Simulated assay, not measured.
Amino acid sequence: MKQSPRVLGRPRNDINAKPTKAVVLETATKLFIKEGYKNISMDDVAKACNVTKATIYYYYPTKGELYTSALIEMMNKIRQAIIRILEQSKPFKERLEELVEVHLSATVAIDMKNFMREATMNLSESQILKVHASENELYKTIQQAMQIEMEKGTIHQGNAEFFAHTFLSLMTVGYFKDGEGNRLFQTEAIAAKEIVDFFWKSVGK
């Protein structure tokens, strides 16, 4: 039987393997984390995935699109992890501590500030809007949890959005290193306890 011609650049399907698009995105994300946007080319991604550059362009027409997808995928994964932790039945303060510890442990190699800075410098306005929309969904997840706990009486009444942004800002302190590369907290567990204790003094009952 004569096979229909493939679209140029379209990868062959292998039902037993991880989808090529997923491999490309996963690999590109790791490369961007390690080397940054400017130091990684579409050629680099293709070589690391062991596919042609045409295959990369089939899924992602530009490096900006690939970078946008990488950022959104990272934030979606972070958001899903946050949801899983917040949906547990343990006390809210304990959930927050676990959230900080897990988040810091999972993202210690990711400089999100640098990611966002490179996004602002290199992405189109529409791409930046997509990234910010995904970032806002992450904030909303924390905000909704704060609102629920207010209604339960676990924390003081206030602006849930402000509480969420304050909490996430405090969490970034866990990444802090001085000029010699020394961390402010020796472990993620210590960071989580100190950060949540500080936050709880303002909102907890």
Rank of each mutant, 00 (worst) to 15 (best):
M1T: 12
K2E: 15
K2W: 13
K2M: 15
R6E: 09
V7N: 04
V7H: 05
R10H: 10
R10M: 12
N13G: 06
A17P: 00
A17E: 08
A17L: 02
P19M: 03
T20S: 05
T20I: 13
V23S: 08
V24G: 00
E26I: 02
T29L: 05
I33K: 05
G36N: 04
N39P: 00
N39Y: 01
M42E: 14
D43W: 08
D44Y: 04
D44S: 12
D44T: 12
D44H: 10
V45F: 06
A46E: 01
A48R: 08
N50K: 14
A54W: 06
A54G: 14
T55R: 07
Y60C: 02
Y60R: 03
P61A: 02
T62N: 10
T62F: 11
T62K: 11
K63G: 01
L66M: 07
T68I: 03
T68R: 08
S69F: 09
I72V: 15
M75L: 14
K77A: 08
I78L: 13
I78P: 03
I78K: 12
Q80I: 07
A81V: 03
A81C: 03
I83F: 01
I83K: 04
L86S: 04
Q88R: 15
Q88L: 11
P91H: 01
F92P: 01
K93Q: 15
K93D: 10
K93H: 10
E94D: 15
R95M: 05
E98C: 11
L99R: 05
V100F: 02
E101S: 11
V102T: 13
L104E: 03
A106S: 14
T107E: 02
T107R: 03
V108D: 14
A109N: 13
A109G: 05
D111L: 00
D111P: 00
M112W: 07
M112N: 06
K113Q: 11
N114H: 08
N114A: 09
M116N: 08
M116K: 06
M116G: 04
A119H: 02
A119F: 01
T120E: 07
L123D: 10
E125S: 13
E125N: 11
Q127G: 08
I128C: 14
L129W: 10
L129R: 12
L129Y: 11
V131P: 09
V131I: 11
V131G: 09
V131D: 11
S134I: 07
N136I: 09
N136L: 13
E137C: 11
L138W: 13
I142S: 07
Q143M: 07
A145S: 05
E151K: 13
Q157D: 05
A160G: 07
A164Q: 09
A164P: 06
T166F: 04
F167N: 01
L168N: 13
L168H: 08
V173F: 14
V173P: 07
G174D: 08
G174S: 08
Y175G: 08
Y175M: 12
F176D: 14
F176T: 12
K177N: 04
G179D: 13
G179V: 10
E180D: 14
G181K: 05
R183V: 06
T187M: 00
T187K: 01
E188D: 15
E188N: 15
A189P: 00
I190D: 14
A192N: 01
K193F: 06
I195V: 06
F198M: 12
F198E: 06
F199H: 00
W200T: 02
S202K: 13
S202T: 13
